[in-house]
């Protein structure tokens, strides 16, 4: 009995050790962990390198693609109106597919369904540009993911992935980003992992990159097998992270170190 009791207590401890979600009032964008130079770079559109992708995206929005010979703008008109607030709701549950779709996935679905164009590869210049252009229309708007009951089971799966230890280093996302944010890993502050600015310009990458790229880099960092681009697991993680950041303002295109 004593032994069984011990196991139960240990299991309960192990469970609660990762259950410390960040209180609403303590949530912070990665922006607040940066130095003044990086903040200034993000704040000024003429110095924010992400704006180069946004401008490319604006061009691509108007360019006809695929055998249907349609541009995004032929259906959606002026993105500054039609796309306002859209990125703040992604990933969203797609009823026809019965699964969540992130913004990159939605752009590619639009291409295959409406433009009859081949999908754009994850992290391609074109997909990053279109995603950045669409997401920038929601800059300053609060993230709204997490209200849809259809999405809830996928958010729950994402949360389970977030708290699952993996890899040779046997760490879960939550070990750093829930339990140890604002401490220093190799001299740099650990952020909360709030996905408020994607796609974003990372100085380390010298490029814009997607949230999936960031997640894959983190997963490789704990020496686990990274999920493939577009995999259900990455979309579930995106859905969980966006719901976790519900109410925080979008910053796309953000700048990060």
């Amino acid at each position: 009995m004593k032994f069984v009791g011990c196991i139960a207590i240990l299991a309960a401890l192990a469970g609660t050790a990762l259950a410390t979600e960040i209180p609403q009032a303590d949530r912070r964008s990665g922006y607040s962990f940066m130095g003044p130079d990086s903040r200034a770079m993000q704040d000024d559109d003429t110095s924010n390198p992400g704006m180069l992708w946004v401008l490319d995206g604006e061009t691509l929005w108007k360019r006809k693609a695929g055998t249907a010979g349609k541009a995004c703008g032929d259906c959606h008109s002026d993105a500054r109106v039609s796309m306002k607030g859209v990125a703040a709701r992604y990933p969203t549950f797609d009823k026809a597919l019965g699964k969540p779709v992130d913004l990159e996935g939605r752009i590619n679905l639009c291409r295959s369904n409406h433009q009859q164009a081949p999908p754009l590869a994850y992290e391609s210049r074109e997909l990053l540009a279109l995603t950045a252009y669409v997401a920038q229309q929601s800059r300053g708007m609060p993230i709204e993911v997490g209200n849809d009951p259809d999405l809830a089971p996928f958010v729950a799966k994402g949360h389970e992935l977030f708290t699952r230890r993996q890899g040779q280093l046997n760490l879960a996302c939550a070990n750093c980003h829930d339990d140890n944010w604002d401490r220093k890993l190799a001299g740099a502050p650990i952020t909360q992992g709030q996905p408020t600015g994607y796609p974003l310009y990372r100085l380390e990458w010298q490029s814009l990159g997607s949230l999936q790229r960031r997640l894959r880099a983190c997963i490789t960092g704990i020496r686990a097998q990274a999920y493939e681009y577009g995999s259900p697991e990455l979309v579930e993680l995106e859905a969980y992270l966006m719901s976790r950041a519900r109410g925080m303002k979008l910053e796309t295109p953000a700048v990060r170190p």
Binding site: Q166, N180, A224
Partner: peptide
């Protein structure tokens, strides 16, 4: 401490989804 964040530096069992480059090492 089963909840420690310190990895076990000399262990190859009980791990999940270890990347190819590090598997069984």
């Amino acid at each position: 401490d089963p909840a420690t964040i310190m990895p076990s530096y000399y262990r190859i069992d009980g791990l999940t989804r270890v990347g190819n480059a590090w598997r069984d090492k």
